[in-house]
Design a protein around this nucleic acid. Structure first.
Lengths: 229, 229
DNA sequence: CAGCCAGGTTATAAAGAGGTAACAAAAAAG
DNA sequence: CTTTTTTGTTACCTCTTTATAACCTGGCTG
């Protein structure tokens, strides 16, 4: 997820930049209004952290112009905390208004609240791939390439999903049982049975990917490629 | 648009209440946490203004419980302005956090920013189309092309509308129940029945569009066209 | 070599999900 | 206040999914 930080105070921009990077975002910086618009166009960031007091083009104006064309989340970060400023910025379409000096933790929390609400936060991934096999965990459907080749039951879906989150790794039986049935929900006999049925389905699908047995320990999803060291 | 204000300080609740009413909102008040949940259930407000420091059930707990069942906008209004409090509230799913004493103008501006972002401000359009089937949700009338081909009941209308807002997507049973009956309002048996009745009507209408079952998950409205990747 | 695991296979039973239908309660219409 | 429509409830049936048990196999150990 890519952030565009707009601030003419380089030290400030650095702090914000550092904060967001640490929170796991990619960061681009612009130092004035005109540059902000340009970067916004060329870089297509996912959201903006915008100072109001900018050379060349005011923050409010930047906000207005971007809002005219895009619905991207915009968070204002400003020294001014007059009611008028806040209200005007929000009315122009900003999503939040934070007054400097700001708390990094709060900035991130507020940002994530806005992202959550805007729907641009990463939705829980519902599609997994291992080797040539793909699982659509929402539909519980498996594919080889583009072709649907089979339908899984709840438990099979759950199990394959666990495998795909840890491909080419040996997963102890206990861990698998926990992931599929939850704690105190399953036993080895049930897992054995489930593995058997899952194997039948993915073998019928005609894929390289297999569930391998690791005697005495558990199972592992082999993608056919060499396992990374 | 209906607000639920939750605050044990009656004077404060009155001020907020007055502010929102003047801004054109309908207002309901609750004075403690338990009452808040009850009112939320019975009154189905469009958003919450929530104090944190409540008798009987803390504001955070109210927030958590409501978030477990609903996506309704929640704005926290609290005297506490510790970073920890703000961050925790936002992480629990609150949309904004305003510190008392608050500015009425700013409260309204922030509220409206959240409502805008949450999409609850734009009126639901009253005409939907999916494939060759059209729904006039105001009249609860369905058409194939220009010809009216059937009349739906309230619930059927609600359900089809939900489908048409997300065509060709798998909608989990829970989500459908929520949209049709609201939180804590329906169960699978009722949904099953409702789907059965809706299917009868749209099948009788002679359309390509169908409600498909996704076993173990929910349903999906299939328009007959290829689904977008 | 006999016996005993662990794990694969097969079979069968229990549980559950979903479609259909009929009916009763509640709400709306007249 | 009666009649009609809508909604909720229950029951039944079928098909799928899941659990359980029995059996088979091959490797390992005493």
């Amino acid at each position: 997820m890519k952030a565009l930080i707009v601030d003419d105070d380089l030290a400030l921009a650095d702090i914000v930049s550092f904060t967001l990077r640490r929170a796991g975002y990619e960061v681009i910086v612009a130092n004035d209004g005109a540059m902000a618009l340009e970067r916004w166009q060329t870089e297509a960031p996912h959201f903006l952290i915008l100072d109001l007091n900018l050379p060349r083009l005011s923050g409010l104006e930047v906000c207005r112009r971007i809002r005219a064309e895009s619905d991207i989340p915009i968070i204002i970060l400003s020294v001014r905390d007059e009611d008028d400023d806040v209200v005007r910025a929000l009315q122009l379409g900003a999503d939040d208004y934070i007054v400097k000096p700001f708390s990094p933790r709060q900035l991130v929390a507020r940002l994530e609240a806005v992202l959550r609400r805007s729907g641009s936060d990463r939705p829980v991934p519902d599609r997994f791939t291992a080797g040539d096999l793909t699982l659509d965990s929402l539909r519980a459907e498996i594919y080889v390439g583009e072709n649907p080749v089979g339908h899984l039951t709840h438990l099979e879906n759950q199990l394959l999903q666990t495998f795909m989150l840890n491909p080419n790794q040996v997963l102890p039986a206990e861990a698998l049982i926990d992931h599929v049935w939850g704690p105190a929900g399953g036993d080895r006999a049930m897992l054995k049975q489930l593995v058997y049925r899952l194997r039948a389905k993915i073998e019928a699908a005609g894929t390289q990917t297999r569930v391998e047995t690791v005697a005495g320990v558990g199972y592992s999803l082999a993608t056919g490629r060499r396992e990374p060291a």
